[in-house]
Design a protein around this nucleic acid. Structure first.
Length: 210
DNA sequence: GCCAAATGCCTGAAGGCTGA
DNA sequence: TCAGCCTTCAGGCATTTGGC
């Protein structure tokens, strides 16, 4: 099996990595098995958590070790049955660190998150302004990407068109305060649905316009 | 459309356990 | 004693996703 669409992962509003991270924080010192047990114990009743989660745990714990969030206490085991023992050394709160297998921070999604923050701050903006304000040295946001993101958020009702675009006068948008649902940026899914992770639900889909 | 990320499946290695 | 089984871990790969 492979990764599920985010709106289908939302049972309990936690991804597998969120649950693993919560288990790590609960134990401080742990093995793969103890985390797996904790994940199952605290899983929502409707979620079918299987033993296979241990593979996911292994992958994520390894990335946490590489990133320095977690330290292995017994790098060389004396006996085959001595399970690998880990310790949490850097607790960054309830939100699971997003890491690659190599332990590097994940930059995917950084552009949309930055745009979401800029929208909530500026309240009134053009696409070019949004892209410029959301860009950093480490991560540039293309105007075309801003156009796509704004398009979907307008459809979903997060943004309103204040001044329609005309030659030499770019379209001006305003952020709808009542749609300030939280710090997490709404996501445009592959199927063009707009999913709000703050609400844990799909807030717009193309069929809604039809 | 391409790429990286996230997740699950599969296989093999190593060593302890168990029963004949 | 020893062959076969079991457990744990590591690594590679496939699939589907969201972001760009």
């Amino acid at each position: 099996m492979a990764r599920k669409p985010i709106h289908l992962q939302a049972a309990g509003k936690l991804t597998p990595r969120d649950r693993i991270w919560a288990a790590v924080r609960a134990h401080l010192r742990f093995t793969f098995a103890s985390v797996a047990d904790c994940v199952v114990e605290h899983a929502p009743a409707e979620a079918q958590v299987r033993r296979i989660d241990e593979d996911t745990i292994k992958t994520y714990v390894e990335s946490l070790v590489r990133a320095g969030f977690v330290r292995r206490l017994n790098p060389t085991r004396k006996a085959r049955y001595e399970p690998a023992l880990f310790e949490l050394v850097r607790d960054v709160g309830v939100h699971a660190p997003r890491l690659t297998k190599a332990g590097e921070p994940v930059t995917q999604g950084a552009g949309r998150l930055a745009m979401w923050r800029v929208m909530r701050k500026l309240r009134r903006f053009t696409r070019a302004e949004l892209a410029a304000k959301a860009s950093t040295e480490a991560h540039q946001v293309a105007v075309e990407d801003a156009r796509s993101y704004v398009h979907h958020l307008v459809k979903a009702g997060y943004i309103a068109v204040v001044t329609p675009g005309r030659p030499n006068h770019p379209e001006v948008y305003s952020f709808v305060p009542s749609r300030n649902t939280g710090p997490l940026a709404p996501q445009i899914q592959r199927v063009r649905h707009v999913y709000d992770p703050n609400l844990g639900k799909v807030v717009w889909h193309p069929e809604a316009d039809a």
